[in-house]
């Protein structure tokens, strides 16, 4: 137990940026829009969060700014995919390239600085529970809000009118349109909101995880999140499980490195990526047997109101 608890605690911490990104992508995809720009949005979020927190001294202002800039990136994607009916795959790649470049360019003045970042707030009573306490309730507030977000979206998708409307737009935009739901408006809204949440995941990297800014610091976590959405079959609770699983692999790998293992670092660094492929393969083979549901039916396809199917 003495060894396990620190690894599990670290798993939650390193899983959190991926969890935010996965949640953001889930709500966007539920509306039928595929956003492959997560990596770029996370980087921009990490940069914005850090620079605002550094300049203003308030980490929370950084989180807010990251969210706003994230929604702006989402706006670009929504405009191309919804209004211009452009190719969502290419638009997402463009977002990633743009975000990677812009964050490197802007962040060049912040390399090497550190900030106090988000502080740890052990929750009273809850953090005293053995095992669960230190693992889940001895963190910063952004981690606690990710728990709330997971619970909220689980409830939102299944039990609220807007949640059902959202799923209708993603599954059958024509029917949703006939019901009087604005397909365009819904897709815009959730693409923006999703991108904002993804950017908060990036901000978590720079504000709480490393407490500094570094070029390309997300190192593929955005792409891992895209894969996790499939792993989670668009279910927020499963997304949390998957994100912590990946966080666990990362934490374990880092611990092995610091423990001075003889396994070379690059080999350990391959683990999360290998695992992504493994997980995706597992899910897809299962899907082949008809066990998997949940992909929004219109994912990736633009909606033409004037046309007939």
């Amino acid at each position: 137990m003495e060894i396990i608890i620190p690894i599990l605690t670290a798993a939650v911490r390193s899983g959190t940026p991926i969890l935010y990104a996965t949640l953001g992508e889930i709500i966007t995809e539920k509306a039928g829009i595929l956003n492959l720009g997560l990596e770029g949005i996370m980087l921009v979020g990490a940069y914005t969060g850090f620079s605002v927190a550094y300049s203003s001294g308030s980490a929370w202002l950084g989180v807010g700014a990251a969210f706003l800039v994230g929604t702006l990136m989402g706006l670009i994607h929504a405009f191309i995919c919804v209004t211009l009916k452009g190719n969502q795959v290419v638009s997402g790649l463009a977002i990633t390239m743009f975000g990677t470049g812009a964050s490197s360019l802007l962040g060049r003045e912040f390399v090497g600085f550190t900030i106090p970042g988000l502080s740890r707030i052990p929750l009273p009573v809850l953090s005293d529970i053995p095992v669960i306490g230190p693992v889940f309730f001895n963190h910063d507030a952004l981690i606690y809000s990710s728990y709330i977000l997971v619970l909220f979206f689980c409830w939102f998708f299944t039990s609220t009118r807007p949640g059902l409307n959202l799923r209708a737009v993603g599954d059958n935009p024509r029917a949703a349109d006939a019901m009087g739901i604005s397909v365009t408006g819904t897709r815009y809204f959730y693409t923006l909101l999703g991108a904002g949440i993804v950017a908060v995941g990036g901000a978590y990297m720079s504000l709480a995880y490393t407490k500094m800014w570094g070029e390309l610091m997300t190192a593929g976590r955005g792409w891992i999140a895209v894969a996790l959405v499939i792993f989670a079959i668009w279910n927020p609770a499963r997304a949390a499980f998957g994100a912590y699983l990946f966080g666990g692999v990362e934490a374990f790998q880092l611990r092995l490195q610091t423990a001075g293992t003889t396994i070379p670092t690059p080999v350990l660094m391959m683990l999360p990526y290998l695992m992504t492929i493994g997980v995706l393969l597992f899910i897809s083979i299962k899907k082949g047997k008809g066990i998997l549901f949940g992909a929004p039916a219109s994912l990736g396809a633009p909606f033409f109101r004037e046309e007939r199917d």
Binding site: I76, L84, A94, I95, T96, F98, G101, L105
Partner: peptide, 28 residues
């Protein structure tokens, strides 16, 4: 100008955005 190498990706991303936008006017 001492800019990071990846800053050229800003331009690359921009080009892709506009090409995607341009596709729209080719098709519609």
């Amino acid at each position: 100008m001492r800019l990071p190498l990846s800053s050229i990706m800003v331009l690359q991303g921009m080009i892709l955005f506009f090409v995607l936008g341009g596709e729209f006017f080719r098709k519609y």
